[in-house]
Amino acid sequence: MNPTRQRLLLPLLNHATLVLFAAVLVGFGLLSPKFFTAANLANLLVQASSTAVVGVGMTFVLLTAGVDLSVGSVMFVAAAVAGKLTLAGAPLPVALLAIVAVGLVVGALNALLVVRLGVLAFIATLGTLYIGRGFGLWLTQTRAMNLPDSFLALGTAKVAGLPLPPVLAAVVVALAHVTLTRTPFGRQLYAVGASREGAKKAGLNVGRLLVAVYVLSGFCAALGGILSLAQLGAVSPTFGTNREFTAIAAAVLGGTSLFGGRGGVFPGTVLGAILIQSVENGLVILNADPYLYPLVTAAIIFLAVLLDSTRSRLQAHWGRRRIFDEPAE
């Protein structure tokens, strides 16, 4: 590989998601004039908010080389609890608080299992995924629940002229971004992800950091659940299924490593979430066979992961074993 090609290829790969994103946008834009309308783009942002928020929590977990498979179940249980409460006459704020409480409780449970009891994150959260889903199905007795309009109103509410869901998502992302880049907690997470033993030896309270991460992920999942509810207005028995995968995909598309220590929420995860959503949104606009959506989404995620792994490999390849600089020619 000659140096000129390196210089061209690397930036391209470095911004793989961005490139892919642009390609998807241009593609849909060309295929349908409706895609690039303000209304649709706003709609796109509203739809992506939930994934972005859940993805932010997931990014924190992935940064520590963990994983949280329970987020979809958290969304479901939280929504089911909120639904039960509102249908029983509880006011909206109480329902919202209950949702957040569910997120924190499941997050704390995950943290207990992973951190205190030493269960692998993958297995622990797979367990809570099933427990949560079973619990939610029991709560709803596997029937869909229609929620009062107050929830849907949340989805269409405006803050300073902007729709509430993206504003809320933006606040979450901004807080998360500052946390990751500007606070001791954030920087320490990267160290834990790079080497847990090393972080411990460096004097960090690794246990406390990990607990915080799983609780945060549960919290974000619950918040994402609220945003989804605000769009759907109903809790079906499949509410939140496979959302753990979309969240992981959003984070990984955004450049966060599954092996910990590398990545971030902005622009990373946000971009990933919007990319996933725009694929679905574009397919809807094109009136594509709905059965094709998962196929296209899977292909796009695959492509993004492929680009990312190619990039890391080339970077490692070019970066290493260069023990002296060649004389300038």
Binding site: A249, L258, Y291, L292, P294, F302, V305, L306, S309
Partner: peptide
């Protein structure tokens, strides 16, 4: 092949395969 020749993480490869194949069967 994706895991070895393309150096992709197995978790992501088989996850996307899962989404794709299941979608394909349904389609």
């Amino acid at each position: 092949l994706a895991v070895t020749k393309l150096h992709m993480p197995p978790f992501m490869v088989t996850l996307t395969a899962m989404m794709f194949l299941s979608g394909f069967a349904i389609w």
